[in-house]
Simulated scan of single mutants.
Amino acid sequence: MAKFTPHIKSENIQIAETILLPGDPLRAKYIADNYLDDVVQFNAVRNMFGYTGKYKGKEISVMGTGMGMPSMGIYSWELINVFGVKNLIRIGSCGAMQKELKLYDIIVGMGACTNSNYASQYNFPGTYAPIASWKLLEKAKKIADEKNIDVHVGNILSSDIFYNDDSEAIKKWINMGVLGVEMEAAALYMNAARAGVNALCILTVSDHILTREETTPEERQNSFTKMMEIALEFAE
């Protein structure tokens, strides 16, 4: 029996237990076209492309999630709770927030600070700290070491705000040693924790908050190969 939601219509095509989640659906297509064999497309609803294929003979899926925690919250919840996905790896871009980071550096999000109200749905009696699954975090570091890829492991910021009216806000996160800012990981980490599955966020520095350096949209879509190669090794 076909499974479907308002946002994912798989048409009886299997979604693998391990899935890569770039924000940009065109990055999902790029990965499917350039890295996977025996590819089938399982989703095109709202042009949020999703594919299942094989990497080195092992099954893996890849799907776009869009921008922001509401979008990530929807897609990751449905993938986990309707389609049975167990390992969700966000692969995205971020803005670097520390001097030692450079364009194209890789950040692995051990924890995800946030200015979002996403956690309010759980009615916590305190402040919840969204963190990555140790199983995936440990594996990502091991894969990176084997490939001689330097990675920075630490805290990231999942922000609801791209154009912040408070120009001083980002400095407070920088002062706490937060490595980079993106917009989705905290929601992914919370959905995964609530369901008892695994999640990890791997990021490539696409721009730098301090130096104002930045990559082009085309480079963000097609050139973040080190991040993709680490994530693809999660295929099972």
Score class of each variant (00 low, 15 high):
124 F>H: 03
19 I>K: 02
203 L>C: 04
166 D>H: 12
166 D>K: 13
143 I>N: 02
233 E>T: 03
165 D>Q: 15
25 P>G: 12
216 T>K: 09
135 K>I: 10
31 I>D: 08
127 T>S: 14
228 M>E: 12
42 F>N: 01
17 E>C: 03
38 D>Q: 14
65 T>I: 15
134 W>R: 12
28 A>L: 06
50 G>E: 01
189 Y>S: 01
1 M>F: 13
169 A>N: 13
215 T>F: 07
38 D>W: 07
30 Y>D: 13
117 N>V: 13
158 S>C: 08
213 E>N: 14
166 D>M: 07
202 I>C: 02
210 L>F: 07
2 A>P: 03
230 I>P: 00
173 W>N: 01
10 S>L: 04
76 S>N: 04
32 A>W: 00
20 L>V: 11
137 L>H: 03
17 E>Q: 13
126 G>Y: 11
117 N>F: 12
20 L>Q: 14
65 T>K: 05
135 K>A: 14
204 T>H: 07
166 D>I: 08
83 F>I: 01
38 D>L: 05
212 R>C: 09
207 D>M: 09
69 M>D: 01
45 V>T: 10
108 V>D: 06
96 A>R: 00
49 F>Q: 01
61 S>V: 11
51 Y>M: 04
2 A>G: 02
214 E>Y: 13
156 I>F: 10
161 I>H: 00
134 W>G: 02
149 I>Y: 12
6 P>Y: 11
136 L>Q: 00
102 K>S: 15
107 I>S: 05
117 N>S: 15
49 F>I: 00
129 A>G: 12
12 N>D: 15
106 I>S: 02
118 Y>M: 05
82 V>Y: 06
53 G>Y: 07
46 R>D: 01
220 R>F: 11
18 T>D: 04
84 G>T: 00
150 D>R: 14
27 R>M: 13
211 T>A: 07
184 E>C: 00
102 K>Y: 11
21 L>F: 13
49 F>W: 06
35 Y>M: 07
170 I>A: 11
177 G>N: 10
112 A>L: 03
133 S>H: 04
147 K>M: 15
135 K>R: 15
5 T>F: 03
56 K>D: 14
116 S>M: 02
157 L>Y: 03
225 T>M: 10
225 T>W: 09
95 G>C: 04
199 A>K: 02
150 D>A: 14
3 K>N: 13
179 L>P: 02
233 E>P: 02
167 S>C: 10
132 A>N: 10
78 E>M: 07
210 L>K: 08
151 V>S: 03
120 S>F: 13
133 S>V: 02
50 G>K: 00
41 Q>G: 10
215 T>W: 04
227 M>E: 05
73 G>T: 01
198 N>G: 06
